[in-house]
């Protein structure tokens, strides 16, 4: 993997680094205004802010679907602002993205959707079968692995989308309203999955409107308002989190 070459830099570099990043669409107004931000590796952040504040735009910069109009964007210490396309593909394999609208492939079963990143990375089929089955069982989809997205409920699709995002053990997980379509029990279970991956070393950024969810976890908030970002302290204390640990 190409990232292997940059291991030394990777360890010291932040998961995400924004230096005076601005973004606008065509001739429109700035969606992001000179945002500077460092998200260390192994961190966990919520991304909050009113609708239309630019949460989705900020995430799409981070998963390399857009390039900043100005400023520099670094992922794992590497400046990706001007990186070549082939390089971006290599970096994307370290990212796991959960879209608000899931974006599952309609012609693939739940299993195939979740297995896609592994298969694209050329992982052997035995490993694919084991890891994907395990993960789908964990998110409670053992009974609909063969079902196609059209046959799944919103909450089931969301869990497939999350499984697809994390199946590759990404270093950075970016999730846009990942618990928007599930009930509280499932939401907590999915959050627990993100927390587990965070403990295993991934950086996690979760964009959400769900104040009560944010209030239950002791993670700092990136608050986006009118194109500017401020870092706010966690709403929950660590002690409360331990008390609220869904496994407890």
């Amino acid at each position: 993997m190409a990232l292997g070459r940059k291991k030394a830099e990777e360890i010291s570099g932040d998961a995400v680094g924004l230096e005076a990043v601005g973004l606008h669409y065509d001739d429109g107004p700035d969606v992001l205004k000179d945002v500077s931000l460092s998200i260390p590796q192994r961190s966990f952040h919520f991304l909050t802010g009113p609708s239309g504040a630019g949460k989705t735009s900020l995430l799409s910069l981070m998963y390399l679907a857009k390039r900043p109009t100005r400023g520099n964007l670094k992922l794992f210490g590497e400046n990706v602002t001007q990186a070549k396309r082939g390089r971006l593909a290599a970096i994307r394999r370290h990212l796991g993205v959960v879209f608000q609208d899931f974006r599952l492939l309609d012609h693939m079963s739940a299993f195939e959707n979740a297995a896609l990143p592994l298969r694209i990375a050329g992982v052997g089929e035995a490993v694919v079968q084991r890891n994907v089955n395990e993960l789908l069982n964990w998110v409670g989809l053992e009974d609909c692995k063969g079902a196609y997205p059209a046959q799944l409920s919103g909450g089931q699709k969301q869990r497939v989308a999350i499984a697809r995002a994390v199946v590759n053990r990404p270093k950075l997980i970016l999730a846009d309203e990942p618990t928007g379509n599930v009930d509280d029990t499932i939401a907590m279970r999915l959050m627990q999955l993100f927390v587990e991956l965070h403990k295993l070393g991934a950086s996690v950024i979760i964009a959400t409107h769900n104040e009560s969810l944010v209030a239950r976890f002791p993670f700092p908030r990136l608050h986006l308002d009118r194109g500017s970002v401020s870092i706010l302290p966690p709403l929950a204390s660590s002690a409360e989190f331990d008390h609220d640990d869904p496994r407890g």
């Binding site: 998963y63 679907a65 082939g86 593909a89 990212l95 993205v97 974006r103 896609l116 694209i120 990375a121």
Partner: peptide, 16 residues
């Protein structure tokens, strides 16, 4: 186009 976008997001290279 949308399928291809997803394939890119999950790490597919142009050559793939």
């Amino acid at each position: 186009a949308q399928v291809i976008d997803i394939l890119h997001v999950v790490g597919a290279k142009d050559g793939y």
